[in-house]
Each structure stands twice: as structure tokens, then as C-alpha cells.
């Protein structure tokens, strides 16, 4: 499952690959839609939760509201079923489906508040390889950074759609993936997670951490008007 963007994505895979997937992109309905989507998918695939060998989950970076629904659901299911979790960064799930290109892929997701989450990938045989950190920044700065690489680029993700004009103006030689590729792909999650599962590259439910890129050490500037929690009503 991946809920790091406005999309709710659920997929079921077997040793033969993708069995089924659901993608709902209505935004803000993760908590209502995720569990029923999982239930429907399992039922129609004639599978039981006890048939599952592992839970794969997109861990962002992404929108907090959705992300915590997916990560929590994945953890709870894994814990109840006593199976491992394969955490996969959601931006990888945006880049992977567009890997049939000679270009460098920039996966860019909308972070709200005028910012985007992004990472850059090179294609390698059978997949993509990340060529930088997962980061958060203003779209204009991201565009300038991408221009500075001098690479031929393929831009993909809902962060591109949200700032399309600016990216087009700044990156006149770039290609833009269509909106069908804008959200993390649940089938990509099956592919990437299955190969990691085979390598036993997984973790316990308690070890799963979402990727939150917004960090701050700042204290809120309280004066004498609030002398710590003791004084709070």
C-alpha cells in the first residue's frame, strides 16, 4: 500500500508478479478508503490475510495526512499477521514506472505550502538507481538545481503538474511524463518489494519509519506569558 500522495494505492502480488491493484485518487479520503480497498482486493483475489507473506508500504516522502494512514495500517497488519514489512520510498514508486528512457528521471511530488519532495534517478538494467537524497524544496529552486545538472531530464510526479508552467519555462529541453504516472505506482511497489523480500531485505513492523523531510530544531518563542506546561490550562 502507498498513501503518500492524494492517491490511495493498494496492490497484491505473488511470486509470479502483480495479481491485482487499486488506485483511488480523490484526495483526503485515505482513512476511509484504504482498509475497504485492501479488503476488496483480497476478496476478489480469493486470498486471506493469513496468505500474506509480507506487507510492502510506501514510506514517503509524502503528505503527512495520508502517509500516516498507510504506514500505520501496514504496521498493524504486519504485527497482527506476524509478517515482515518491506518499506519502499514513495518517490521510487513514481520513478520506476517511467524507467524505459535514456533520460535522467526527476520524481517530484507535491508537498503543499509551495514546496515539492523530489529525488533524481538514473536508469539501470531492470530498474532505477537513485542519484541523490530525498529532499524537500521550493519548485523554483528544484528547477534551477535540475537545470544545473545539464542532463536530459524526464520529469514525473504530481509536483510537476502542480507547477507545470514554471517547470516548462525553466526546463525547456525536459520531457514531462503524462499524468497517468503522477502518483506512486502500486504495481511498482509489488515489483520492487518482491525482489527485496526475496533478498530478505525487510524489517519488523516496529522498525518502519515514514520519511519526514521537514525537520526543525527550533523552539517556539514563548515569553513569560507561558511558563512551560505547568502554567497551561
Amino acid at each position: 500500500m502507498d498513501t503518500a500522495t492524494p492517491q490511495v494505492g493498494v496492490a497484491l502480488g505473488s511470486e509470479h508478479g502483480l495479481v491485482a491493484q487499486i488506485r483511488l485518487a480523490q484526495g483526503r479520503r485515505h482513512a476511509e478508503q484504504l482498509a475497504p480497498a485492501i479488503e476488496y482486493l483480497l476478496r476478489e483475489a480469493q486470498a486471506q490475510p493469513s496468505d500474506l507473506a509480507a506487507i510492502a508500504v510506501g514510506v514517503g516522502p509524502g503528505l503527512f495526512t495520508g502517509l500516516r494512514v498507510g504506514v500505520t495500517t501496514a504496521k498493524v497488519m504486519a504485527q497482527a499477521l506476524e509478517i515482515p514489512v518491506v518499506p519502499v520510498p514513495s518517490l521510487d514508486l513514481v520513478a520506476y514506472p517511467v524507467r524505459f528512457t535514456a533520460r535522467v528521471i526527476a520524481a517530484v511530488c507535491d508537498a503543499r505550502r509551495g514546496e515539492v519532495f523530489y529525488s533524481v534517478y538514473r536508469t539501470v538494467p531492470g530498474g532505477v538507481q537513485r542519484a541523490g537524497e530525498y529532499r524537500v524544496g521550493a519548485p523554483g529552486e528544484v528547477a534551477a538545481e535540475l537545470v544545473a545538472t545539464g542532463e536530459d531530464l524526464l520529469l514525473v510526479g504530481d509536483g510537476i503538474s502542480a507547477h507545470r508552467q514554471m517547470f516548462e519555462d525553466e526546463l525547456d529541453r525536459a520531457e514531462f511524463a503524462s499524468t497517468s504516472f503522477a502518483y506512486p505506482s502500486p504495481s511498482a511497489l509489488v515489483e520492487l518489494a518482491c525482489s527485496r523480500y526475496r533478498r530478505e531485505d525487510f524489517v519488523r513492523a516496529s522498525e518502519v519509519q515514514p520519511l519526514y523531510l521537514r525537520k526543525s530544531d527550533a523552539e517556539i518563542a514563548w515569553g513569560p506569558d507561558r511558563a512551560g506546561h505547568e502554567g497551561a490550562p
Binding site: F64, R112, R113, A232
Partner: peptide, 21 residues
């Protein structure tokens, strides 16, 4: 109400960026 919070990070942890919509 941010009165009970001590650190800016606590607001990030609440998904504050998405609260403002």
C-alpha cells in the same frame, strides 16, 4: 492552538503544512 507546544517540530509532526489548506 499552539499554546501547548514547545517545538516547531511538533507542528511538523501534526502535518501542519497540510492543516493549512
Amino acid at each position: 492552538d499552539v499554546y501547548r507546544l514547545d517545538f516547531v517540530q511538533e507542528l511538523h509532526d501534526l502535518g501542519f503544512e497540510e492543516v493549512l489548506d
